[in-house]
Amino acid sequence: MQSETARVTTARESSYRVQYPNSKRRDVKVVALDSSSAKLVDEVSREHWNGAQFFTSLSFSADSEPGATGDGLKAWLKDLAGAANDLVEEVASSDFVVVVTSAGEDARAVSLIADACALHHKSLVALVVPGPETSDAEISASMTHLRPFARMLVIASGADYISAMLTALRA
């Protein structure tokens, strides 16, 4: 007699996979770390997304320096409509966070976002997007900067990869 595994791995049997959803909507927060990546993120945000939210800049309150942690962490994310949102609250209500930086740009804001992620145990994916003129050294510098903070660090092939990745992650 045929084994059970052999019987159930045909195309026909595969068509009986239950047709109910196996996950809920994710709340993904996508943050551009600098002004050139803000343009990319703005572009990507115009596509249709399930629950992803997009932010284009980070600002600090006067009494909070990059590097502050815990209660000392006071910073705001600006969404595309221009409204300021509390960084820690945004991270707390997310499922995971994606930061995007253009190679060679100032990506220091990542440390603050990473602190907020650490505080709420959220994972952080970092995308480095090289421009047409970017040098290897610039990519390398961005990578070195982001390395300590991200669980997954990707040199994206371009803006199209941001969309592809977010789609793949059901953002």
Partner: peptide, 20 residues
């Protein structure tokens, strides 16, 4: 199954190798 139904999968950030 003979051809994986990827419409049902739930990838995470660490699956970026596959995504890329």
């Amino acid at each position: 199954g003979p051809i994986c139904d990827r419409t049902k999968e739930n990838l995470v950030g660490t699956d970026n190798g596959i995504i890329m």
